[in-house]
Amino acid sequence: MAPATSPTGSDHTGSRRRPFWTMERRDALAGYLFIAPQLIGITIFVLIPLCLVFWFSLHEWNVLAARFTYTGAANYKALLSDPGLGEVFGATAIFSLGLVVLNMSLALLLAVLLSQKLTGITVFRTLFFSPVVVSLVAWTIVWSFLLQKNGGLNAILQVFGLEGSNWLRDPTTAMISVIVVQVFKNVGLNMILFLAALQGVPKELYEAARVDGVSPFKQFRRITVPLISPTILLTSIITIVGSLQVFAQIAVLTQGGPGMSTTVLVYYLYQQAFQFHRFGYGSTLSIVLFVIVAVLTFVQWQMRKRIVFYER
């Protein structure tokens, strides 16, 4: 099939006027049409509200008093002198850190256990994943009963002769209780992601390592972890961002108490805006939260070169 030199060949090189709908333009149009739904959605539900929140944060806005006055950076200055904010950041950090560490390590442990080829293992996989699809509020309400002073957990402990505390009302146990309830709710999601990643590691690598004399623990550390590191990065971003947005659990379990011990940033924001009717200040806190999430995500993404040992 020798390429024939056609007499009209020069038409394609542009000596004739090109039609408006060239191949590239048609491709580009198709491309824009494909991303249009997502783009419109993000604009309406993310970008516009974000701009509005920023605009509100420059105002003093009391819905009850129908006051909406421009105050410039006053809300941002108020942040610096807010006496509760330190405690709120502390609680947020403890909550997020505890949640991420507990969630990720438990998820990885479960994934490793459940990736064994044993009969009936899918039953366990389903079991651990099922809380993810349960209604968040229903899940949390059930746990709030279980964790009461005379609740189910303490009843079980009593059988063993132990006396449980009032888990959600005791300042020393409230935070850890909230974290654990949330980990149990969501650990299945990370577990499934880890499971998929583990199954993507070729089994010959483990066989080669066995022949090479590498112990199972070292195989995990030197082969498994590096090879699933892209998933570890992904799940850590999802989990951290998710942990910073926890609200319903706190509202149902502790309402931020006892004291301020479980008042994380989102809950504090909710209190300021909807309980104290300071919408302007609430908006300011939203912006702070947004910046924190954005910076954390950016930092993690930048760290991927050092965390992720291996990218396809």
């Binding site: 070729p202 010959e204 066989e207 080669a208 066995r210 022949v211 004399g213 040992f309 291996y310």
Partner: peptide
């Protein structure tokens, strides 16, 4: 005996090189 104690080396069909 576990493979590591057999003093053997194996070359696999798809090489099984550690990609990272």
């Amino acid at each position: 005996l576990e493979p590591k104690f057999r003093d053997i080396a194996m070359v696999f069909q798809n090489y099984a090189l550690y990609p990272h």
